[in-house]
């Protein structure tokens, strides 16, 4: 493995999103903060406790996870897809760079972006409400493995996509609804059957609830179950993304 190439590709990806920070950092921060203001601060003052914590605290980890899911996905998918379309992927394809370096560099940079936005959202929330960090270990675990999983999914979608529409399907029609239905704003215990059971099929439920347990120590699902689902998802996309890159799928003709 070439460490110089890995370092260069990673820094290139970090610089790419830093150069357009209005889009990549500020925009998700503003959107997520608005959700927080509307649901957490305005409506939250009218709502009772949920799962034993004040509603305004309840939504914080949900919103942090929702934006990290979206940002890590968007970072890899848009970067890789754009370079496929404008032809600059050639620079990487002719270089002594293997699938491993590509995965590490793209995923690493996407994680950095997602964690920056997630941290900033926490800071915005902190200016309105105190909230605990119940379990640092679980918080880190879910932050790292969820952002890595979504970054890998973003790479897979970018490889598969042939036009911009394909790329837009995922964040808007898959990730956003699944995050909402995964309990960002509510506990699925509030749902009647069959929706309670149906909700348990949604992998994003475990991501949201995993981080919520890390922050607040309460969740609809035990952290061990959530961790299991997240780890399996991570391994599936890791194997798939590596295999696609190694085969040159939609990259090398």
């Amino acid at each position: 493995m070439s460490t110089i190439a890995l370092k260069t590709l990673f820094l290139k990806e970090v610089r790419r999103f830093s150069k357009v920070w209005l889009q990549t950092i500020l925009s998700p921060l503003v959107t997520t903060s608005l959700y927080f203001l509307v649901f957490g601060v305005a409506l939250g003052s009218r709502l009772r406790e949920i799962s034993g914590v004040p509603y305004i605290q309840f939504v914080v980890p949900g919103l942090v996870m929702m934006t990290m899911i979206r940002d890590s996905f968007l970072n890899t998918s848009s970067s890789l897809f754009q370079s496929k379309i404008n032809g600059t992927i050639t620079d990487i394809l002719v270089a002594p760079i293997g699938a491993l370096e590509m995965v590490l560099a793209y995923v690493g940079a996407a994680m950095i972006r997602a964690i920056i936005v997630g941290t900033l959202v926490c800071l915005v929330a902190l200016s309105f409400t105190w909230f605990p960090l119940h379990h640092m270990g679980w918080t880190l675990f879910f932050t790292i493995f969820v952002t890595a999983t979504l970054a890998l999914l973003g790479m897979i979608v970018a490889l598969w996509a042939q036009k911009f529409d394909h790329l837009a399907i995922f964040p808007n029609f898959v990730l956003l609804p699944l995050a909402f239905l995964g309990g960002v704003f509510y506990s699925i215990d509030l749902l009647p059957e069959p929706w309670h059971t149906v909700s348990r099929l949604n992998p994003l439920l475990y991501m949201v609830n995993g981080l919520r347990f890390g922050f607040l120590g309460v969740a609809d699902v035990s952290p061990v179950t959530s961790a299991g689902v997240v780890l399996v998802s991570f391994l599936v996309v890791l194997v798939a993304a590596s295999a696609l890159l190694r085969s040159g799928y939609n990259l090398r003709t």
Binding site: R15, K19, D91
Partner: peptide, 19 residues
């Protein structure tokens, strides 16, 4: 093909690293 994010100098430096 060119990367709209980087200047010619940056592009060359990056390409060295990638190679």
């Amino acid at each position: 093909g060119y990367d709209p994010f980087f200047t010619p100098l940056e592009s060359l430096m990056i390409q060295m690293g990638l190679m």
